[in-house]
Design a protein around this nucleic acid. Structure first.
Lengths: 333, 333
DNA sequence: CTGAAAGCGCTTACAG
DNA sequence: CTGAAAGCGCTTACAG
């Protein structure tokens, strides 16, 4: 293994000087610099990141803390993760995956000193992990929000997204619009459910009809259950907005199985999902595509800005979903 | 920050002895050990993983090397990734994500010394990354296979999977069975395509009809194209096996759009995907569910076994997919 | 069974 | 502009 010592010897300088040109932390005479760069090139030297981390007390590693995601293979999840990985890499950071469900284990890992900061996924309204992070003195950024709006986060702008969805439906004459959200058995609710609901209530208020919110599990069975509830209980609705990726297909199937037409009898918009999911369903669903890759990247950026003390870096970013018209929205009956 | 030095001072021993009890590398007198453990407890000490890595030349970090996965949000991909992350964590290792497309960048990262070993995803028949890994002297395990069968890998047992799929179809009287695989524009083909094809040829040989292989892109458009080819060109086929997750929904839609019934006119099995994907489609697809979580975990295990010199650890594992009956397979017409 | 000490490969005041 | 040296927090022969 070739070390800084070898480079220094070949360039006839001290290892300190090699370090200075590598980091650009001090001015070095042009000729000296050239000699060092030549030596680095000739020896094919790469500085050891572990030694650098120990000496500088900065590992340049970030943790992505998330619950078990195997269980919910939603299309947006991988986009978040990969967006964060790309964002980190591009700024010279590494991203480690920490699939931990309990706070204890997270604190334990944090105390090991491997990471400079953490990205939190699946953030809940009241999230005890945040207190742990603060206690450990570890900088962080959230993907999603707690009830405390002053923390660093990136999130989907649900207010704008839902308003646009409602506006789109109103353009087709819909006045009675229901909402389908996600119920997570056992687990505390992610913050977005609450935000989505209030955005929905605000958006449909001008229409003068009472809100109808249906919470089901994020899978096909949940979707079919939502279809039944919608058709039986709330029969008069002509459109529905879903913020439940996993239930989208089941809802469409359930509606059709009940002999109703999409969009003839019911228009559907699935929000916070991917264009690809919409294409898979019959009829092709109109979706509000989540800016998941961007959010992943922005989360990494926000955390790194914080670590590096970048001035005027935005600690919080909200991005709305993008409407991708399919064949599931039509005129109100 | 509390260090080993603090623990040693409190327990009245040298830091060497503290290190010995922490690592279990040398026998320590019970009373001494008890004193040290008490001190660790009282001070809430956690050993610094970076210092440990530098001193032991073992970082206990693994890299997951993969091309850009944002672009292809297949359901199995996240399962692989999370399986590997879990497997690593359970054995005290961390997994970093390395989204790199070119070999140069991979070698560059490797040379930094951050990782003890690498897991390679999306392995191609001839994969230049393998040579790079060998050149860098970095242990690795593949998720998938190259043409060289002697390397450490985990993979789906496509031979068994395809045979089971064909046997299932034969049970329904099918004799003319087509295959739909994936075509990746530009990129070299992953090794599995080749293996799937030869497994398919072997499995249908006893049926006495010529093979029909259709390669399309892994998205809805690809699936619809496959449907057209299948219905127009190969009209006499009564069943199709897909090994193209992303095209599954498009194929089903295309077949129905052409006025053909599933499974009345055409039976469909989608192999190497998830049960959830099958549920999303209309009619619910019979799938061969990929053992993706297990394979991710096994890949991590194989690599760690190698790093730790575990005797008799299996360097290669093949796991078949599991048949999950849906509504897309019926008697041959 | 325990300790003193070298060493892992860097960074970073400090001195000149 | 450059260097000598301490130090980051551990592990690991080596000696006793």
């Amino acid at each position: 293994m070739v070390t800084m010592r070898d480079v220094a010897a070949r360039a006839n300088v001290s290892i300190a000087t090699v370090s200075f040109v590598l980091n650009g932390t001090k001015r070095v005479a042009p000729e000296t610099r050239a000699r060092i760069e030549a030596a680095i090139e000739e020896l094919n030297y790469r500085r050891n990141v572990v030694a650098r981390a120990l000496a500088s007390s900065r590992t340049r590693i970030l943790a992505l803390v998330h619950p078990d995601l195997e269980a919910r293979p939603n299309a947006t999840v991988i986009q978040f993760v990969m967006g964060a990985a790309h964002g980190a890499r591009e700024r010279g950071y590494d991203l480690v995956l920490w699939p931990v469900n309990d706070d204890e284990q997270m604190s334990h890992l944090l105390a090991g000193g491997l990471v400079d900061g953490a990205l939190l996924m699946e953030v809940r309204i009241r999230d005890s992990r945040v207190a742990r992070l603060v206690a450990a003195g570890v900088p962080f950024a959230l993907i999603g929000r707690t009830e405390d709006d002053d923390l660093p986060y990136v999130d989907i702008d649900f207010a704008t997204t839902i308003h646009q969805a409602v506006a789109h439906l109103r353009g087709f004459g819909h006045e009675r619009v229901a909402l389908v959200t996600q119920r997570t058995k056992g687990a505390p609710e992610p913050g977005r459910i609450m935000r989505v609901e209030s955005a929905y209530r605000a958006a449909i208020a001008p229409l003068g009809h009472p809100p109808a919110v249906i919470a089901v599990e994020g899978n096909s069975a949940g979707g079919r259950q939502a279809a039944r509830t919608l058709l039986d209980g709330f029969g008069e609705h002509t459109a529905v907005i879903l913020v439940n990726e996993g239930a989208s297909a089941g809802l469409a199937k359930g509606v059709r199985a009940a002999g109703r037409a999409i969009p003839g009898d019911l228009s559907i918009i699935s929000a916070a999902t991917t264009r690809e999911l919409g294409e898979m369903i019959e009829p092709e669903l109109t979706v509000m595509a989540a800016p998941a890759p961007e959010l992943g990247r922005l989360a990494a950026d926000a955390l790194i800005d914080q670590l590096e003390g970048v001035p005027d870096a935005p600690p919080r970013t909200l991005l709305p979903c993008t409407l991708v018209p399919g064949e599931s929205v039509g005129p109100a009956r």
